[in-house]
């Protein structure tokens, strides 16, 4: 940012000089008007300068073309020159909201007030309260931030993975199997557990057989198969 501010001062002076000149020429043209009317129809030029973020060269090479300056949502328009300065010509006296729009940077809007004598006053826009935070004129507007339009995708994190319900579903039974038997060292719970196991015992041998048969593979006895088939039928 610093380098922006340290721009050769001559350039700035030149520009403002030029502004005066252009204004003079405009005034020349208006001279034939009667003097009373000049006050009413007086037109003024809002001037200022836009500073993008200091890293602009890397992200947006041609930010000046993409920056638009709008007064009251497009009533008057200004364009940014190469050095960031801008002029909005031909504005009658009144109170205006100036927006600086750039797709990549966010600028704060400003309220510019011009009285009928051509005195300029600028302040921050506050739509709710009427507190006045003055801003020096000619305007110097700095970009607040890089505009972020996108949500950030969630990153893969170990904790997220562990607390994922599916992973919990896989690991919790494992933990229960490993740790519960260790906890059941005291005899009372052991007894209770045995009782519960006795209740569920009637099915287990058959399933165990099935698994052992499956694992044993070759030694399938036909009688067992038949029995199983019958039992399966019954269950259905």
């Amino acid at each position: 940012m610093g380098c922006r501010n340290k721009r050769p001062p001559q350039l700035r002076v030149d520009l403002s000089l030029y502004v005066c000149l252009s204004h003079l020429s405009a005034a020349n043209a208006e001279l034939p008007n009667s003097l009373e009317e000049v006050n009413d129809n007086a037109r003024f030029t809002i001037e200022g300068r836009v500073f993008p973020l200091s890293d602009y060269q890397t992200t947006q090479s041609n930010w000046q073309t993409n920056t638009r300056i709008l007064i009251n949502g497009g009533e008057f328009r200004g364009f940014v020159k190469k050095d960031g300065s801008f002029l909005i010509n031909n504005v009658p006296s009144g109170s205006y909201v100036m927006e600086i729009l750039n797709p990549d940077y966010t600028f704060e809007p400003l309220r510019v007030e011009i009285n009928s004598k051509g005195k300029f006053r600028a302040r921050k826009v506050n739509f709710i309260q009427s507190t006045v935070v003055p801003v020096p004129y000619p305007l110097k507007v700095k970009a607040l931030t890089n505009t972020r339009y996108f949500q950030v995708r969630e990153q893969w994190r170990l904790t997220d993975f562990i607390f994922n319900p599916m992973v919990m579903m896989m690991f919790l039974p494992l933990v229960l199997i490993m740790i519960l038997p260790k906890m059941m060292n005291d005899p009372e719970t052991k007894k209770e557990m045995e009782q519960i196991q006795n209740l569920t015992k009637f099915e287990m041998p058959e399933m165990g057989d099935y698994v052992s048969n499956l694992l044993a593979g070759t030694s399938n006895s036909p009688s067992q198969d038949k029995k199983k088939a019958i039992k399966n039928k019954k269950r259905q």
């Binding site: 030029y18 252009s22 020429s25 405009a26 043209a29 208006e30 037109r43 041609n62 000046q64 073309t65 364009f79 940014v80 020159k81 190469k82 801008f86 002029l87 010509n89 031909n90």
Partner: peptide, 10 residues
């Protein structure tokens, strides 16, 4: 497409 100069004729 940068603006170079701007002035008005009225």
């Amino acid at each position: 497409g940068n603006l170079i100069t701007e002035w008005i004729i009225s």
